[in-house]
Amino acid sequence: MKLRIKFAKFGAMRFIGHLDVMRYFQKAIRRAGIDIAYSGGFSPHQIMSFAAPLGVGLTSNGEYMDIEVVSAASSEDIKNSLNKAMVPGIEIVSVTKLSDNAMNAMASVTAAEYTVRFREGYEPSFDWAHLIDAFYEQPSILVNKKTKKSEVEMDIKPAIYSLKAVVDRNGTAVIRMLVDASSSGNIKPGLVIEAFMKEHGETLSQFALEITREDTFTNTGTAEMPVFIPLDAVGDQF
């Protein structure tokens, strides 16, 4: 049985890198006593795969991993068992069951929504909350993307599905964006902000942004007319 697990990562846990999060979950699944399936071979490993790696320093409300289990009582039971095995900073949000032919988490990812905050003391000097609309309305947004060998200029506008300033729960102005997160066209939120600031003659400092991934999406529409739904909307509660 394939399960999709959605979790949040916050607080001190934002400093734990992707590979270590995987190791963390392997041990957590043992502590929680989940009846996970193992691969064959001389050194069997848990059947587990993650959707999209999250960079060190970022928090998230919508991380996903798929696991294969031999047996499971219910969504609620798995969720509770896992939450008892968590440390502060990782929380299981939902557990859903996937159909046998469902695409795996990593291949399903097409987009991700981010909230971007300017860290105190790093805010741009221009009126960014109002100017962001004009920036997004441009027909193209050109950035220099570094590859291994050279730098190429590319237009990231088609990869930004939405970009706006909003007010968060604490009444602070933040930037919210929905961007391409597929393996072939992934856009880092910092790249968008960097282009925005560059347009206003400012440079983005390495530590200026506090970024939260709000959720990770898959496309149930077409490439031209995308319909984005969160990765756990594919599965069912059981």
Binding site: F15, V87, P88
Partner: peptide
């Protein structure tokens, strides 16, 4: 490896 300095382990 910032994880060396944050504690919070299981």
């Amino acid at each position: 490896k910032p994880a060396r300095y944050i504690g919070n382990e299981v």
